[in-house]
Nucleic acid binder design. Sequence first.
DNA 1: CGCGCCTTTGACGGCTCTCAACTTTCGTGG
DNA 2: CCACGAAAGTTGAGAGCCGTCAAAGGCGCG
Lengths: 235, 235
Amino acid sequence: MLNQSIANSVVSTNATHTVPSPAVPSPAANPFAEITGHAGLIASEFSYKKDEEIYGEDEPAEYVYQVISGAVRSYKLLSDGRRQIGAFHLPGDVFGLEFGSVHRLAAEAIIDTTVRLVKRRSLEQAAGTDVTVARKLWTMTAHDLRHAEDHMLLLGRKTAMERVATFLLEMDRRLAVAGMMALPMCRRDIGDYLGLTLETVSRALSQLHSQGVLGFSGARQIVLRNRQRLRSMDA
Amino acid sequence: MLNQSIANSVVSTNATHTVPSPAVPSPAANPFAEITGHAGLIASEFSYKKDEEIYGEDEPAEYVYQVISGAVRSYKLLSDGRRQIGAFHLPGDVFGLEFGSVHRLAAEAIIDTTVRLVKRRSLEQAAGTDVTVARKLWTMTAHDLRHAEDHMLLLGRKTAMERVATFLLEMDRRLAVAGMMALPMCRRDIGDYLGLTLETVSRALSQLHSQGVLGFSGARQIVLRNRQRLRSMDA
DNA sequence: CGCGCCTTTGACGGCTCTCAACTTTCGTGG
DNA sequence: CCACGAAAGTTGAGAGCCGTCAAAGGCGCG
């Protein structure tokens, strides 16, 4: 019931599980380039396989990362294994930037992922002499804070359907290409991001599908057919 | 059932509804003093009555505030009135600091409150020339982010009892005097902070009381009698 | 001293979780 | 290119935690 519901002539069938977003935004809008360019910092690249850990919670924060391709989840765990994903990082996003010396959340590659990275101490040092770097660090942290504030509202007060609607609109904004989005993450990841179980996420998506609000082309290829309706559900 | 359960000989009875914390931490630990002292900024004072709005959501962010006395809640609203309190601000805390030009959350005085305030543009300007100020702004935003990340885990994954336990330990740490805390906020505020209803908060507190984990002296005067037990409940 | 807000407590219902079975998709290898 | 097995996703039934509605009690402020 979840397939063949899209006239997806525009979508290449081998696009599954890759995030086809524009690799990295233009240099002008790229905070990493701004910083490294400005301060003459050395940026390396590194790749991680699907589900590979990039760093652990409370691990020393040695590097700051930018997603080049792939996708990353940042999360916290409770002692019994309950997980809260705080953010998904998609191509162009910077993650792992900490004020202190340790990572407050763990990070894992959701799919095969390549990142650019610079040493945190280099950034700190540059910020100590260059106010534009210092300001950029503030900007990036402030951006994360804004997202966290919105997400607290979602987690504390929205219904399951509202959470899923919010999620779809966020992902649509961040990774839709030609009106379609290829989700890199599984239902469990979505649930742990939204404070729900994977079953509840699945049921909400099925309901939206049956109402014609969205179309599937494989469980992770989604087309939004009625964004206005979705926005009205997002409370 | 909620009163006279404490041998509170140390607590003056007229302490209700005032937050008896140390007015403002030592200048060395005071971010506001650090900044204003460093940059020669002008700080004014202002007072708000109980439940008075300090600023609204999406209002221009003209000032940055520091609580001198009293208590403040920062929150977001959904269109139908559901509210998520993102943080409580107690004496010494800085709030209302935004990277952009508008406030992402509204702020209200929980009880009669006096604040110190400086113009945001003054800070921005100072940060443009002084890296220590720029760094301080980053520090404060990073601190808020850390709290928001912890709170997302609470809202997304903790049970009602775990949330209340976490809340009690947080308030104990932040405003306990002589082993007792005088909560400035009502049950509804606590519920809106924890993503619960006021009734659920009340039931959890009653249960902790009946288990001897805490003692009451009026609904808002609480003594923690078994912090270890509470920590084990907070997951 | 008394009114009104805050808090507590109870009964009940429902939204989401849990547990389970089935289906589909996807990666792998023949 | 197809077959196979495992992982991911869907769907159903039932339970439980927390929310809703309601009422009574307590405390604080005027």
